[in-house]
Design a protein around this nucleic acid. Structure first.
Length: 268
DNA sequence: AATCACCGCAACCGCTTTTGC
DNA sequence: AGCAAAAGCGGTTGCGGTGAT
């Protein structure tokens, strides 16, 4: 029983695409379109590839106007803001960044932005765990250092980067608090938002998803007061990376005379 | 110079959602 | 309305390149 496979795995080629395969697929789709059926397309054009593989190759690589790499600061900010708000909905995030694919954004997040946003601790932790044996790593990796903790709900006592004592980012506070001038969302200068901007700076459609997703952050106790309270209201803005505050649309304030130390004496 | 570990990316896997009958 | 097939999507894996030891 079980689901029928989408193709005969024994008779399809896997792995990297050759230039010839790319050319076949590209020229066919440019001339005839996909025909509305990815499953039969590879047979039609004599490719020994799974239909899903063809679709992926087209969407992520062969499609016109695809841009790879070279993410700008502005794009980084958009990705971070959306990730914080709606989570790993890569296709939705990609829809806000013309020329970017969900796969590309996902890779960019996993390899760079995650570290940029939450600090080097994640990175160091990973580096450490990769040096140890597989069984040990299996015991450690879940819920530590990685953003997986957001959805797994592991408490921050298990959260490696939340335990680190020496963060000294400039202090920050929510825009809504006090008289600080809000940071202008960088998105407003991006043409594809024109016409349907919500107060958050994203498209109206996206705004429904963009209500601050506190549930998503429940596992991240550094977003919360120790006694509960909403994720954004309870956040200790002195202890987070500036980029994270960009993600929240927060105002960054001038440095305190003494940097806040994250440690046992500080309430999270 | 050799070896090892890490990083970045392309591609795959399998689950969920959508569509057509 | 119910089912099956196709499409969409997000998580994960594998591998080549690169830097550190």
């Amino acid at each position: 029983m079980g689901r029928a496979p989408c193709c005969d795995k024994a008779n399809v080629k896997r792995g990297p695409w050759s230039p010839e395969e790319d050319e076949k697929l590209k020229s066919h789709i440019e001339q005839h379109g996909t025909g509305g059926n990815w499953i039969t397309l590879p047979q039609k054009i004599g490719l020994k590839r799974c239909g899903k593989s063809c679709r992926l190759r087209w969407l992520n690589y062969l499609r016109p106007n695809i841009r790879h790499g070279g993410f700008s600061e502005e794009e980084d900010n958009i990705i971070c803001r959306l990730y914080i708000s709606i989570g790993s909905r890569w296709s939705i995030i990609a829809a806000q960044l013309p020329g970017r694919t969900d796969n590309d954004i996902k890779n960019h997040w996993n390899t760079r932005l995650k570290k940029k946003l939450f600090g080097k601790q994640c990175d160091d932790r990973r580096r450490h765990t990769r040096r140890i044996t597989r069984p040990e790593q299996d015991n450690i990796d879940h819920g530590t250092g990685d953003l997986g903790i957001i959805s797994t709900g592991v408490s921050h006592s298990d959260c490696y980067w939340a335990q680190q004592p020496a963060l000294s980012y400039p202090p920050l506070r929510p825009v809504s608090e006090g008289s600080a001038t809000p940071v202008t969302p960088p998105l407003q200068s991006v043409p594809f938002y024109e016409g349907s901007l919500s107060p958050t700076g994203f498209s109206t459609e996206l705004d429904e998803l963009f209500q601050f997703n506190s549930a998503k952050l429940e596992g991240l106790d550094c977003f919360n007061e120790t006694n509960g309270g909403s994720a954004s209201a309870g956040m200790n803005w002195n202890q987070v990376n500036p980029l994270l505050c960009v993600a929240h649309g927060m105002q960054q304030l001038p440095p305190l005379e003494e940097p806040v130390q994250l440690g046992a004496s500080v309430d999270l």
